[in-house]
Write a protein that binds this DNA or RNA. Structure first.
Lengths: 217, 217
DNA sequence: CGCTCGCTTGAGGACTTTCAACTGCCGTGG
DNA sequence: CCACGGCAGTTGAAAGTCCTCAAGCGAGCG
């Protein structure tokens, strides 16, 4: 989605319908250090290519260097739930069990570091930057998921979309990510709505002058 | 809620409407070691008492020893979203920022260990049981939240309740927790439904013989 | 014994989805 | 070079799910 969100207006809109008592997490971005080749393998992923798929052996976990990644779960009847979007610095794909429990795709061209899962214990035991980064990232992901839960469980379509735009605008500002080619379907599956509803709400917000015109794709 | 869920029937029901491609996480319960008094302070929390509240300084994090804890977020218009239920061994209340972003309450009488947040870094740097337990617990929480997201975003009321009963039955079995006095309102706020809808669905499942009679409170 | 609280059930209504048609853009191929 | 097909998005109408409001029930407690 390419609409430029006006945070102020959205906050105003947001305030009408129910605000969190504590401000949403400000994200806990982890700086992207450079790692010795022996532990971090750099990889380049082309547009809309899978990084890993649900059910595969979870031998690696990843840190985003540039671009965006989305992780999602599918039901066997085709319904899809996007768990999250990951920007530069974010870590994803750490599993407790032997298999990935969800899939990950690139959105646009993406660069990542791949870490061997078997190194995880060793890495965290070191008093390393990476160990802290992992801990920090996990806690940040957890916080983000809590906001997401609130969004999905207790908010109207309009609040969902507004909250989403706000969140993404903030994160994008911090991560200095270039314009993101997010599709309606992605937003819908992130928010638990249908594409049509997302489209309607965006049109509505646009008509009300709350967000800038959202040019085509 | 006191209905005894018949897992088999629920799975059957579940299979009709959409199943995950990979089985739900089996939980990553962390054994409850005993810790030296210097790092872990044991606490006893009476029934339905707050453990911490959103917005307070997040000076401690906790591990459940016995009983159950629920964490939740409130909107200022009274809507509530329960993030999760924590059973024996689970760790909760770790924050990246200085404040708690949600509140925690006991359900029934609860015993916990309280850890100083300022010790966190030291604890994780050690090659300690606790460090691993924390990492493991965080990853487990994340997995659980993903299931929760799927539940909230892409499932019908019936699927939500069924999924919830299944999940709780499994966890309770593992944690050997005694019967849980969960109220309809708690279930509703966990699933993003109204109390009435939860009640209706439970009645329906009961009529269909899928769950045992759910005696009063 | 009466009150309160949690649960249940019904009826009507609001919000979101589903189905369907239409638009504009882009790449492909004649 | 232009026509065609496909894809993403938009919009409308009808249908469905879930919520809100409201009343009734039963158990526990003062």
């Amino acid at each position: 989605m390419s609409g430029s969100a006006s945070a102020n207006n959205l906050v105003k809109l947001f305030g009408v319908n129910g605000t969190r008592r504590t401000p949403a997490v400000d994200g806990w971005n982890v700086r992207c250090a450079s790692y010795p080749q022996t532990i971090a393998e750099p990889r380049l992923v082309p547009n809309r290519r899978k990084i890993f798929t649900e059910g595969e052996a979870a031998d690696f976990f990843y840190q985003v260097v540039s671009g965006q990644v989305r992780t999602y779960t599918m039901l066997d009847d085709g319904r899809r739930q996007i768990d999250g979007f990951y920007l530069a610095g974010d870590i994803f794909g750490i599993e407790a069990g032997p298999l990935y429990r969800f899939s990950a795709n690139s959105i646009g061209e993406v660069a990542v570091f791949a870490f061997r899962r078997s190194d995880l214990e060793r890495l965290t035991n070191l008093n390393s930057e990476l160990g802290k980064a992992i801990l920090f990232s996990l806690v940040g992901s957890l916080a983000r998921k809590q906001d997401h839960l609130l969004l999905l469980g207790r908010k109207s379509a309009k609040e969902k979309v507004a909250g989403f735009l706000l969140d993404m605008a903030q994160r994008a500002a911090r991560a200095t990510t270039s314009g993101m080619p997010l599709q309606r379907a992605d937003i819908a599956d992130y928010l638990g709505l249908s594409r049509e509803t997302v489209s309607r709400v965006l049109s509505q917000l646009s008509r009300d002058g709350i967000i800038g015109a959202h040019a085509g794709r």
